[in-house]
Design a protein around this nucleic acid. Structure first.
Lengths: 121, 121
DNA sequence: CTTGACCTTCACGTCAACGAGAAGGTCTAC
DNA sequence: GTAGACCTTCTCGTTGACGTGAAGGTCAAG
């Protein structure tokens, strides 16, 4: 499929897809015309990218992770051994983020529960 | 205390503290010399700011929330009623973030568990 | 009274993940 | 054969939370 279709199906902009390619996250085929040509698995890949991005991982880290992700028919496991430490680190950062988010949500909950401290009965 | 001490005790840069003031999050006294003079409660306030920032809230939202947060001896409850909707919205966004983070962490867990899919036995 | 640590206000730089627009090539349908 | 929907590369802009000097005032200690 071409870039427009993938963009629609994945719910992202074409600009984002070109950006991902620029960062080495996608490597679509090219038609003689120069048009990008994506396989079906690209849709899954893009969803993975979005998920990891929303987890706060940078494109550089994702670029190292992606080749290790199943359902990706590209070569497998290029630099996986030394990647494990990095993954553990990222995992720790995610867990910390979750804890911070939970704490912040508790603050909001306290504010909402009191009806906003405007309440002074 | 002056800005340097607060920065050290809160673990942030003086630049950040001046930025928070510029955004209306802090309102320290001023000495005749022009030096900023912070009370003890400023430390708590800064910790709240950092927590909410790390939860993805912007300084503008935090500026509305802060006066409603306990342990802040400033005036109480200025624009709290109409703020409640916004708070609920932010709460929802935080919950969504937590879910995304959890899903992303699951992906990493799968990768780590398989030893990085280099494993093909 | 001077050194050195601390403070002040500008004001421009950074970084990430794109958005937006220009100038032009491609392909399908009529 | 041409309209229009799609694509290409290129380049500059945006947003938020600061970093990083520059140029200069303040103050306790020796």
């Amino acid at each position: 499929m071409r870039i427009g279709e993938l963009a629609r199906r994945a719910g992202v902009s074409t600009r984002a897809l070109r950006y991902y390619e620029e960062q080495g996250l996608l490597r679509p085929q090219r038609r003689p015309s120069g048009y990008r040509d994506y396989g079906e698995q690209a849709l899954t890949t893009v969803r993975h990218i979005r998920l990891l991005l929303s987890a706060g991982l940078g494109t550089a880290v994702i670029a190292e992770i992606l080749p290790c992700v199943p359902d990706d028919t590209t070569v497998l496991a290029p630099t996986c051994p030394e990647l494990l430490d990095g993954l553990a680190g990222e995992r720790a950062r995610i867990t910390a983020s979750i804890q911070r988010l939970t704490a912040a949500r508790d603050i909001l909950d306290a504010l909402i529960a009191t009806g906003g401290p405007a309440r002074r009965p």
